[in-house]
Design a binder for these strands. Sequence first.
RNA 1: GUCCCCAUCGUCUAGAGGCCUAGGACACCUCCCUUUCACGGAGGCGACCGGGGUUCGAAUCCCCGUGGGGACGCCA
Length: 463
Amino acid sequence: MIVRTRFAPSPTGFLHIGGARTALFSWAYAKKHGGDFILRIEDTDVARSTPEAVQAILDGMHWLGLDYNEGPFYQMQRMDTYKKTLQKMLADGTAYYCYCSKEELEALRESQMQQNLKPRYDGRWRPEADKVLPTPPQDVPPVIRFKNPQTGNVVWQDLVKGEISIANQELDDLIIARADGTPTYNFCVVVDDWEMGITQVIRGDDHVNNTPRQINMLMALGATIPQYAHLSMILGNDGQKLSKRHGAVSVMQYDEDGYLPEAVLNYLARLGWSHGDDEVFSLQQFCEWFDLDHITPSAAQFNTEKLNWLNAHYIKLASTDYLVNDITKRLAKLNVVVSEQPQLSAVIDLYKERVHTLNELATNIAYFYQKPVIDEAAAEKHLTAETKLVMDSLTSLLKAVDWQAEHIHHAINEVVTQYQLKFPKVAMPLRVLLTGIAQSPSIDQVMVLLGRDEVIARISHWN
RNA sequence: GUCCCCAUCGUCUAGAGGCCUAGGACACCUCCCUUUCACGGAGGCGACCGGGGUUCGAAUCCCCGUGGGGACGCCA
């Protein structure tokens, strides 16, 4: 049987890190088994779905490189199918009209809560063999409810959590079509998963409680039941649940913040899944290794520091061409115009082993293309009156030196000897003058790239 | 409240009854490298939630407790 998995987000917001991981695992499972990965947009909540959100999800998946074999399918465009199925269920007696008003339902829920009962529909419009149903009120447009079995258990082997069993007594007759006729989530999922031939439903574990209902409907329809794999959630850095108002950000924010997609992917892959002691691996390797047996059933806390470490690793690996292209854009955002000299590629090569993010890289090299702002603390510490003299001597030497790291180094050494100083005594003030701060790569390397004129200008600018 | 799920270093995790004196990674600390800061290298600190069973033997299986999370919408 061909594996078919799907990612089915609702377009009510951006693609966040949890959704991205769900998509990644679902995608990887299909890839691993040579199957198909389907994208389905669950937009039946018309009030909250937006085209912008659809685009944001598409953008996020594109950035991560999660391509799909089919879709995107939009549930709002599949109404005919749902309605047909609804009619069939009404005809079969597996669904029925319910004329309860929202107020009535609200009152019911209220009283159940007060009695410490689990709030649920009491089945007052559920047809039974010898039951006399009330007369339908004229002013209440009916909803359609699924006639859920009342006895027995729904049991499935969850591919992540193992056997899960829920008693039908815990379930009520859920609404599968609203009063306006539009079908609801649990019903659409069932129809779609069935019609699209989904073999493994890989989704967040907030859906565990929906699963028995969906299985019951699938059975009522005579459909094949897919396998289910429920992924635990991802918590924020502080161990708190991620939500719109607490820490949840779009995956595109990671792009903004200077993360490489391969770093985010690698990090996400390792969050809740493992392959022995392996930490760093390519997407391709991940697809070969991926399985559902090694997914942790418990929630995982996001850790930006580990992401940073991975990102640093992937920046070191990134091609210079890629980095030049990317960093040019980031510098432009900082209002830094990249000139011909020094060559951006050379500057990047000098810095790319020292940073955790692309933004850090851009920020750190900005001084090559614009005058540095001298850090006050650094200036106070290193730019003392006596060093002024040393810098002057150095300037004279630099004017004549062959502009290569080796010779520049020699020149510095000469001054070091002349004034009987330690090397850093000359290098540090130079650093501050040239870069604005007290940390940089090898100072002679920096000078080579900066160019003789600029170096001398920056030194003499000190007054 | 009811139902469901979860529980190994601070964090991500390895672990399928003996290989566990519990392994790896991030972070942290120390040292080395060094021209500052990084990078890199070598070490170090650091965990099986508690209690009962089962077993010759339990991080691993079972039960109870505790803690955390999720669900209980004409949202998805």
